[in-house]
């Protein structure tokens, strides 16, 4: 009984640390936030952070995994009722809006992160490319979008989003880039990929 209680408490502390780290990384950056800052913000000792995450690399990877699980699940749910590529992209935007600050940091700092964290980022992107490829494949068969190679279709969309997010200070210094430009970017991309009917 006491063992179960201890395990539950340990799980709660771990979850709390991940939540606080998500917030801190979004505000201060993944590579510049110190574990001491996370301990302070979480109201625990520095040693408690290390008891759960022996290195900074383990912590960063765990937080990116948690972010990835949430975005993938959200996209999976939102895309479940989708009828086409536009719906899937709108679902992607919606999922990212909920974690925009963290995602923008991830995009900017990806190459500076440990390899395990970089692979996790690739895995997150693969859950998105999966939904896009499913919807796009169907629309290509129906002739409603151009038969672009899937990787170009995916990279054109993600490249557009990442450019705006990475330069958010220029596009939306006071707020959310995706709130302000999401619809415009979506319409532009759909216009690029769609086949015009005579």
């Amino acid at each position: 009984m006491a063992g179960t209680r201890r395990r539950t408490q340990k799980d709660q502390t771990r979850r709390h640390l991940i939540e606080v780290a998500l917030e801190q990384f979004a505000q201060e950056g993944l590579t510049t936030t110190r574990t001491a800052d996370i301990a302070n913000a979480a109201g625990v000792s520095h040693g408690t952070v290390f008891a759960h995450f022996p290195t900074q690399e383990v912590l960063v990877t765990a937080v990116i995994e948690e972010f990835g699980a949430r975005v993938s699940t959200r996209l999976h749910e939102l895309a479940a009722g989708s009828t086409g590529l536009r719906d899937v992209l709108a679902a992607h935007l919606q999922g990212l809006k909920e974690f925009e600050a963290f995602y923008a940091r991830l995009v900017i700092e990806r190459r500076l992160l440990p390899e395990s964290a970089q692979s996790t980022f690739t895995l997150i992107q693969s859950s998105i490319s999966f939904h896009i490829s499913q919807a796009a494949g169907k629309e290509m068969e129906e002739g409603t979008i151009h038969p672009w190679p899937i990787h170009l279709l995916f990279n054109t969309w993600v490249g557009l989003l990442h450019y705006y997010l990475a330069n958010g200070d220029l596009f939306a210094p006071e707020g959310s880039v995706l709130e302000r430009y999401g619809e415009e970017l979506l319409n532009h991309y759909v216009g690029l990929t769609g086949v015009k009917r005579c």
């Binding site: 992107q125 899937i150 990787h151």
Partner: peptide, 10 residues
Amino acid sequence: LSGFLVRTQG
């Protein structure tokens, strides 16, 4: 999985 990453992300 690696084939999928090549095909969908290039």
